[in-house]
Design a protein around this nucleic acid. Structure first.
Length: 385
DNA sequence: GGGACCGGGGTCTGCCATGGTT
DNA sequence: AACCATGGCAGACCCCGGTCCC
C-alpha cells in the first residue's frame, strides 16, 4: 500500500551518514587483539587438534571468571564456545561503561552467548541507534537485561536504522516508538521486509473490510497492540478469518473492533482464540443468553475473548454466586477485567455491609482499589451511624 | 460528590526450526 | 558440517485514574 513504496523512495534519498557506512564487518577483522584478554585466541595446542567440537579453553576460562553460566551458554549456542576469536572482554567493558553490572553482563552472555561475537564498533553503532529512541543508557541496559536476544540477535545495523525510519514514516510519534521498542524490542531486529509485510497485511485487511483509510487503520492497530510486529502475518490473517467466521459482525463492526481493544485479540494463538469464542458461546447459552447478547458483549468488551476458558468460567461463576445476574454482567462487562481473586474479595466485603446490587448496580466492582476502599469506608461509616 | 464512561499502562521471553553461507 | 541470521511459536489480564455528567 501507499506507505511502503513511499518509504522505499524515502530510503533511496540516503539521508543518513551511518547508513552509508559499511556494516557487517567481521569480528575477526576488527578486534584489536592486544592488549591481551580483550579477545580470546585458541592456543597452539588447540590449533593442532581438529577444530570440530573443540571448545576454546581460554574463552571458557574467561567466561568463568566473568561469572557466566557456561553450562547455560553451551546449551544455547554451543558453536560460540568453539570460536577462535571472540570479544567477551570488549563486550563487558562496553556494557560496563553503559552502567551494566557484572551480574547483568554475565546474565546477558549466559542467555545469549553470540553477544560476544559482536565488535565494539558494531555495539557502539547499535547503541547509538537505540539511543535515538531511548534517552538513557540505563533504560537500554534494563531491556538488554530483560531480553538480550532482542539487541544482539542481528548483526545488521543498517536494517535496524531502516526499521526506525520505516516505523517513523507510519506516523508513529516518538512516544509510540519508545513504547514499541521498550515493550517489544524484537520488532527492531526483524528484517525491514518482515515489518513492511505486517503493515501491508494490516492495510490489506482494512481494504478488504471496506475501510477507507488503510494507513490510519494500520497505525491504530499498531499503537493499540505493540506486539503486532512480533507475530506472524499468518497468525494475524487466520485470527481475522476466525473472527469473521465465528462472530456475527459485519465488516464495519469488525473494523471498529480491530481498531479498538480488539487489536489485542490478534496476538492470541489461532487455536486459543477459536476455543475462547466457542467456549464463550457455550457458556452464554448455558446461562440463558441469546446470540445478540454475545455480539453486544464482544463489541462493548472485546477483551472477554482474551480470557481463558477456565478463568472466564470461574469469574462468571463467582459473580453469579455472589448474587449478580448475567444481565448486570452484560451491562457492565468490564467487571470481568478484574481478577477472580479481586472480585471474590470485593464480593465478600460488599456482602458484609449488605450492598444491594439490584439497587446500586455492579459498577463498584469495576473501580480502582483506591476508589473501592474509599467507597467501603463510606459505607462502613454510614452503617455505624 | 459520586458514579459512569473510557482510555491508557504494565507486560513479553526463550526456545526451536529453517534456509543460507562459509 | 557448522554456524549464522532470522522467522515463528507458546503462554493467556489486571488495574488505575481522568473527565464528564447528574
Amino acid at each position: 500500500m501507499a506507505v511502503v513504496p513511499g518509504f522505499r523512495a524515502f530510503l533511496s534519498l540516503g539521508r543518513s551518514v551511518i547508513l552509508q557506512q559499511t556494516f557487517g564487518l567481521n569480528a575477526v577483522h576488527l578486534i584489536a587483539c592486544p592488549p591481551r584478554r580483550l579477545c580470546t585466541l585458541t592456543t597452539k595446542s588447540d590449533e593442532t587438534k581438529p577444530p570440530v567440537n573443540t571448545e576454546n579453553e581460554s574463552l571458557l576460562e574467561n567466561l568463568n571468571l566473568m561469572g557466566v553460566d557456561v553450562k547455560m551458554a553451551r546449551l544455547r549456542q554451543p558453536g560460540v564456545l568453539r570460536k577462535a576469536f571472540t570479544n567477551e572482554q570488549g563486550l563487558a567493558k562496553f556494557l560496563q561503561s553503559k552502567g551494566a553490572s557484572r551480574k547483568v553482563i554475565a546474565g546477558i552472555i549466559s542467555r545469549y552467548p553470540r553477544a560476544i561475537t559482536r565488535t565494539i564498533s558494531h555495539l557502539e553503532q547499535r547503541w547509538q541507534l537505540w539511543k535515538n529512541i531511548f534517552t538513557s543508557d540505563k533504560e537500554i541496559v534494563s531491556i538488554l537485561d530483560r531480553s538480550p536476544e532482542s539487541f544482539f540477535r542481528s548483526s545488521d545495523n543498517g536494517n535496524l536504522e531502516k526499521n526506525i525510519a520505516f516505523l517513523t514514516t507510519l506516523g508513529l510519534n516518538s512516544k509510540d516508538l519508545h513504547r514499541l521498542l521498550a515493550t517489544a524490542p524484537r520488532t527492531f531486529s526483524n528484517s525491514l521486509e518482515l515489518n513492511m509485510q505486517m503493515v501491508e497485511c494490516l492495510e490489506d485487511i482494512c481494504a478488504e473490510l471496506g475501510g477507507k483509510d488503510p494507513e490510519q487503520f494500520a497505525k491504530a492497530v499498531i499503537s493499540r497492540n505493540l506486539y503486532i510486529f512480533i507475530r506472524s502475518t499468518k497468525r494475524i490473517k487466520t485470527n481475522i478469518d476466525i473472527l469473521r467466521a465465528l462472530l456475527n459482525l459485519n465488516d464495519s463492526e469488525l473494523l471498529r473492533l480491530l481498531q479498538g481493544h480488539g487489536a489485542e485479540l490478534l496476538d492470541l494463538s489461532n487455536e486459543y482464540l477459536k476455543n475462547n469464542i466457542i467456549n464463550l458461546q457455550q457458556k452464554m447459552v448455558s446461562l440463558g443468553c441469546q446470540t445478540p447478547d454475545m455480539k453486544k458483549l464482544i463489541i462493548s468488551y472485546p477483551m472477554v475473548l482474551y480470557i481463558g476458558q477456565a478463568t472466564l468460567s470461574s469469574k462468571l461463576d463467582c459473580l453469579l454466586k455472589g448474587g449478580i445476574t448475567m444481565k448486570q454482567v452484560l451491562q457492565t462487562p468490564r467487571v470481568l477485567d478484574y481478577s477472580t481473586q479481586n472480585i471474590t474479595g470485593r464480593l465478600e466485603e460488599l456482602q458484609k455491609v449488605g450492598y444491594d446490587f439490584e439497587k446500586n448496580g455492579i459498577g463498584i466492582l469495576d473501580s480502582s482499589r483506591k476508589r473501592f476502599v474509599a467507597k467501603m469506608e463510606k459505607l462502613a461509616a454510614l452503617s455505624d451511624n
